[in-house]
């Protein structure tokens, strides 16, 4: 099958490529656009390691074809913070030991980023429910939940201080 032209915005930058219709978005992001943060874990949309933010939704990029992302606005972990200016979530995951092998972490943080936009002050139960599309084999989630709660508190405090 022939390749088709695909264009999308990734972390604020317009990117384009030629892709077969069957090429999965995760492969195009990782291999053509160099965004290696999102990972491949299960390939059947259970583990969430490939989670990206696409048009304001948390999406498992292993279950979307690149052609379906035409014109989409995508944020990956690479777009969430910079080395000089880490996102609060990134800082809190480190502070509270919310990661070990690091493989699930980009998906976790990217998902948590959207969760906190939709629910800036979640309960622990809401965090656990909202993060249930992301599997972690190392941490047992306890410190991930702690990190997200701490990030929410810090973001809210910063918001209040700004007002």
């Amino acid at each position: 099958m022939g390749k088709v032209h695909v264009k999308m915005t990734v972390n604020g930058q317009e990117m384009e490529t030629l892709a077969e219709p069957r090429e999965l978005l995760i492969h195009v992001l990782r291999e053509q656009f160099g965004m290696k943060g999102p990972h491949i874990g299960c390939e059947t949309s259970h583990c969430g390691a490939c989670t990206i933010d696409m048009d304001g939704k948390s999406v498992k990029a292993c279950t979307v074809f690149a052609v379906q992302a035409e014109s989409a606005d995508i944020t990956t972990i690479e777009g969430i913070g910079t080395p000089d200016n880490l996102h609060v979530l990134q800082a809190m995951f480190r502070e509270h030991h919310g990661l070990q092998c690091g493989y699930c972490t980009p998906g976790m943080i990217t998902r948590a980023y959207r969760l906190l936009q939709e629910n800036p002050d979640p309960t622990e139960e809401e965090v656990r429910f909202g993060m249930a599309g992301n599997l972690c084999r190392c941490t047992g989630y306890q410190n991930i939940v702690k990190a997200i709660m701490a990030a929410a508190a810090e973001m809210n405090a910063a918001k209040e201080a700004a007002q």
């Binding site: 995951f93 480190r94 972490t105």
Partner: peptide, 21 residues
């Protein structure tokens, strides 16, 4: 001590086998 590895992992800058191209 907070982990030194986490600086790169939290930014998606780990280097796993499928990242080797």
């Amino acid at each position: 001590r907070r982990r030194v590895e986490d600086v790169r992992f939290t930014q998606g800058k780990g280097n796993y086998i499928d990242d080797v191209n």
